[in-house]
């Protein structure tokens, strides 16, 4: 089983979002970067499958040099080697092009990633990669078992889930509860330092350009209703907020 896991380096879920340079750049000051939470699930499942079936797990990050701490953590969790495509991932098509270019050089049985990155939330890179490679893509996958060359999966759909079977190779966008998050142990952290990390340059170009960022308008004060008059809420929702 040869698995490629694509990971993002993203601001921590509690990070305060702000911008600099006339609202054209994300303000990284004071922000902690983490592995994308969905990518963490993909990586954990990949390591579980490797432990069960043998094979290798390669981590791929499309990102700048400062994402190497996230890559090292993935290696500490159990990936064997890593590739970083040296660029800022700003556009879905461009990012997918980098992944498909790397993936086309090896015969991966599975290409796993999170259902979406938590910075841009597009959730389209897995589909783009699948199309670029000419293989099926599925997301969000919440259960994955491998039986020979067949993958048996459960995918979340609106209001429920569906069971799916498909032959490898596949591109999958993952989410909980596909695996338990793994935490690196001391031995993992020590060995991660010497595992191979290859840096390659990107190909192609962005199809979209972000001109500026804005923050949502601040919320007005919360109108408090005394518990003994709770029924008033329904009237206010109808006459004032006009949502009922």
């Amino acid at each position: 089983m040869k698995i490629l896991v694509c990971v993002t380096s993203v601001p921590d879920t509690t990070a305060k979002i702000s911008f600099t340079d006339g609202d054209t750049k994300f303000n990284k000051a004071g922000v902690t970067y983490i592995t994308g939470p969905y990518d963490d699930y993909a990586l954990s499942r990949a390591v579980e499958l490797k432990e069960k079936l043998g094979g290798t797990v390669t981590v791929l990050n499309v990102g700048e040099a400062d994402s190497e701490q996230v890559i090292r953590k993935c290696l500490a969790i159990g990936a064997d080697d890593a590739i970083r495509v040296n660029c800022e991932p700003k556009d879905s098509y461009f990012t997918a092009t980098q992944i498909a270019t790397i993936a086309a050089q090896e015969n991966y049985d599975l290409i796993l990633m999170g259902r979406e990155s938590i910075d841009f939330n597009s959730g389209v890179v897995h589909g783009l990669v699948g199309e670029m490679l000419g293989i099926p893509s599925l997301s969000p996958v919440m259960k994955l078992e491998i039986d020979g060359t067949t993958a048996k999966m459960t995918r979340e759909i609106e209001g429920g889930k569906e069971d799916i079977e498909a032959s490898l190779p596949l591109v999958l966008g993952c989410q909980e509860p596909i695996a338990e998050w793994k935490i690196p142990n001391m031995r993992g952290i020590m060995t991660a330092r010497t595992k191979p990390l290859k840096v390659v340059e990107p190909v192609g170009e962005d199809l979209t350009v972000t001109e500026k960022f804005t923050l949502p308008a601040p919320k007005g004060a919360c109108k408090m209703i005394a518990a003994e008059n709770a029924e008033e809420l329904i009237a206010l929702l109808r006459t004032e907020a006009k949502v009922l």
Binding site: D91, V124, V125, L128, S137, T208
Partner: peptide
């Protein structure tokens, strides 16, 4: 999302979500 992503791959289209 899934259908649109594959279409973007076919057409070399820019895709923006949300």
């Amino acid at each position: 999302d899934a259908v649109a992503a594959r279409l973007a791959g076919k057409l070399k289209a820019s895709i923006v979500s949300n």
